[in-house]
Design a protein around this nucleic acid. Structure first.
Length: 252
RNA sequence: GCUGGGGUAGCGAAGUGGUCAAACGCACCUGACUGUAAAUCAGGCGGCUCUGCCUUCGGGGGUUCGAAUCCCUCCCCCAGCA
């Protein structure tokens, strides 16, 4: 009996929705948020910037925390800032009687939050900044599992769509607004490749498309490697129905 | 039909008698990851009973101790001429 009491350590819970790019994280997260009274917290190192919409694939149809909180071109967002803000948000969400649902593809951010990393206020030398603490909440980590071939196909189709929606124009606009190419290059993927394209590095849009889609494939693979090895207790699911069941169990 | 060029591993492309299972790039696969993480970096990538063996460089035949590399022939592609 007393044992049982111990296991019910807290009613503070956090749901994580992870997976490689194009695996459908956002859709699942939004559906879960609606159904289970959740609030979305983005764990995405690129969607934090305002104006980077098409290239980062923001879904503004539903409110997310930690999206559009930085201006592009300035200091880069960082793990430290993410942790600070996320750890501040969670209690606020619990207070409202809601469940935080952390969605995102930035594995390092997820791991750090999940493991309760605490970073010193100031940057210290590499290798000794971590002070790990047990997270003060229960977690459910749901990863979306999509067959590799399907994933690649989705990535390709999505990229094509984004290019039609004005991906290149978006980057041109940022550059015109004064964002440096160097800064865009550091972001990688869409912003890096389109910037290169605008600098004349590729023959045509088709070459840009191909170079970029393969770079995204590689990125998706890296994300999967991270999920497989750097996060414990990941529950792989094939989609919303399965995720819903796990969430229902978790919340009870 | 003639002439010239060409057919090399999933694709592109080196190699032109031995040190070639075959450079390199791409795709693909795997892994690392401690304050830029959509970043950065590493390995693999014909097959196997894997410190060696087997089957590969359009097909077949030949020369040679030895061929992806030389010769003959056949098939296919491209360019120019008919």
């Amino acid at each position: 009996m007393t044992q049982r009491k111990k296991t019910v350590k807290t009613n503070k819970k956090v749901i994580f929705i992870v997976g490689p790019t194009s695996s459908g994280k956002t859709d699942v997260a939004i559906a879960l948020a609606r159904e289970f009274n959740g609030e979305l917290v983005s764990a995405d190192s690129r969607q934090v910037y305002r104006g980077l919409d098409i290239g980062t694939g923001k879904d503004k149809s539903y409110p997310h925390h930690l999206i559009d909180i930085k201006n592009p071109g300035g200091a880069m967002f960082s793990l430290g800032e993410f942790l600070r803000r996320a750890n501040e948000l969670l209690p606020q969400i619990w207070e409202k009687g809601k469940v935080p649902i952390v969605v995102g593809g930035t594995g390092l951010y997820i791991t750090a939050l999940l493991k309760g990393y605490k970073l010193p206020k100031k940057k210290m030398g590499r290798g000794r900044w971590r002070k790990q603490e047990k997270p003060a909440f229960d977690t459910l980590v749901i990863a979306l599992d999509v067959p590799r071939a399907v994933l690649y196909q989705r990535i390709d189709e999505r990229l094509r769509r984004r290019m039609e929606e004005g991906l290149i124009a978006e980057v041109e606009g940022l550059i015109r607004a004064g964002v440096e190419a160097k800064w865009l290059n550091k972001l990688g993927l869409e912003y890096r490749y389109v910037t290169n394209y605008l600098a004349g590095e590729y023959e045509n849009e088709e070459e840009l498309y191909n170079k970029l889609r393969f770079a995204i494939h590689r990125y998706a693979r890296r994300q999967l490697t991270w999920l497989r090895h750097q996060i414990n207790g990941v529950e792989w699911t094939r989609g919303l129905p399965c995720a819903r069941v796990k969430v229902k169990q978790f919340l009870h």
